[in-house]
Simulated scan of single mutants.
Amino acid sequence: MSATDSAPLDVLAWVSVHERRVLVVRTRGRDAWYLPGGKREPGESDAQGLAREVMEELGVRLQPGSLRHYCTVEDVSHGLAVTRQVRMQCFTAQAEGAPAPQAEIEALAWLSAAEVTACAPAARQVLARLAADGLID
């Protein structure tokens, strides 16, 4: 394993709460829910990378200037051939448009904290925090 392989996967995630539930997505072939987002491309800022990923996955435009850091979590990856640590920087942002599955996204859902076990490990941490902060049921 190279030093690159042992470094945590650095990913960005959008935390969207509506009616006390959080938006999650499931990609084709996966069995767990994830927060929308992904890896930034070379040279992208957090805002640019997250906006691109959310547009690709959900067809939603994040409003410039509305991005706010919510939390950063680290946990084990889910669904990869080799287990790695994931470092997920989570942001809230206002969006234009209604989310709908695009590209590799098979489905989306709005989950409560009671449904946390259906999520990937890092997303579980975020749902627990949202519940502790009184943002989701």
Rank of each mutant, 00 (worst) to 15 (best):
W110Y: 15
Q63H: 05
E74T: 15
S45R: 12
H69Q: 10
R52M: 09
A128G: 13
W33G: 00
V86Y: 02
R26F: 08
L135F: 00
Y70F: 14
R52S: 05
G65D: 08
A98K: 09
R52P: 07
Q63G: 00
A123Y: 05
Q48T: 10
R68H: 11
R124S: 06
R84W: 03
L23K: 03
L62C: 02
A122E: 07
D133L: 05
R21K: 14
R52K: 12
D133I: 07
Q85I: 04
A118M: 03
E74H: 13
S112K: 11
T83V: 12
S77T: 13
A47F: 09
E106P: 00
S77K: 04
G97T: 10
A114P: 05
S45I: 08
M88R: 12
P8G: 11
D46Y: 10
V82W: 02
S6T: 13
K39V: 10
A113N: 10
V126K: 06
C90F: 09
D10A: 15
R61Y: 12
G97L: 06
A3I: 07
G49N: 08
A120V: 03
W33V: 02
P36I: 12
H69V: 05
D137N: 12
R28H: 14
Q85S: 11
A7K: 15
V60N: 06
D75A: 15
P121S: 11
D31L: 05
L135C: 02
L108K: 00
A81T: 14
I136Y: 02
H78P: 00
L108D: 00
S6G: 08
E106C: 03
R30M: 13
A7I: 03
Q89F: 01
E104P: 02
A32V: 15
M1S: 06
V22Y: 10
L111G: 01
G134A: 09
L9V: 15
A114Y: 07
V54C: 08
G134Q: 12
T117H: 11
